[in-house]
Amino acid sequence: MHRIAAMMAVITLLLPAPTLAAPAELRIIPEAELRFGKFAVIDRGSRIIGPNGSVQSSGVFSISNGDTSPARFTVSYDRGNNGKRQLNLRIQLVLAAAPVINQGGLVAQLSGYQTDLPGAATVQPGQIVEILIPNCTQRVCQTTFNVGARLDIESNAGGGRLEIPIPADVVLISVK
């Protein structure tokens, strides 16, 4: 019995840190807003901001330049310890449908997500996009991606500042 107890103690000591460290954590962090800029709409119009910052407008009149940019998110995985074992992370990303905004004579709808993630140039709301973070050997590994979208505006009267949320979910699928 003494030998077994001793062996268990040795085994316990040999166990790597994870069992004693913080739990692993996956997070998605909004780094930058999707900026559609300032423009006038006579009746209805739309503007598309690409993940690379490209701008396409239809039925809108630009008021200023240089005030558009894609959204940027960071997906971060903290393994919770300082282990060096190489991890390959599979993560699922879902960009949910944004709510339709009805504000002071303006109706705004966000649609047609675009990303610079491999294989996910266009993303429908609710569509699952897989993000891979390979060869993770640090405590925290992360990847950053841009999101563009299309904004449709219907103007019945007046103007205003609009803010539309972009719901984003990530789920860790596997760690190998």
Partner: peptide, 22 residues
């Protein structure tokens, strides 16, 4: 260690526009 946990995260990014009355 990681596979034993069901991990996920939700956030809300923001998009903004300023609509000027014609």
């Amino acid at each position: 260690p990681a596979l034993s946990q069901n991990q996920g995260s939700t956030t809300f990014g923001a998009s903004r526009a300023e609509i000027i009355s014609p």
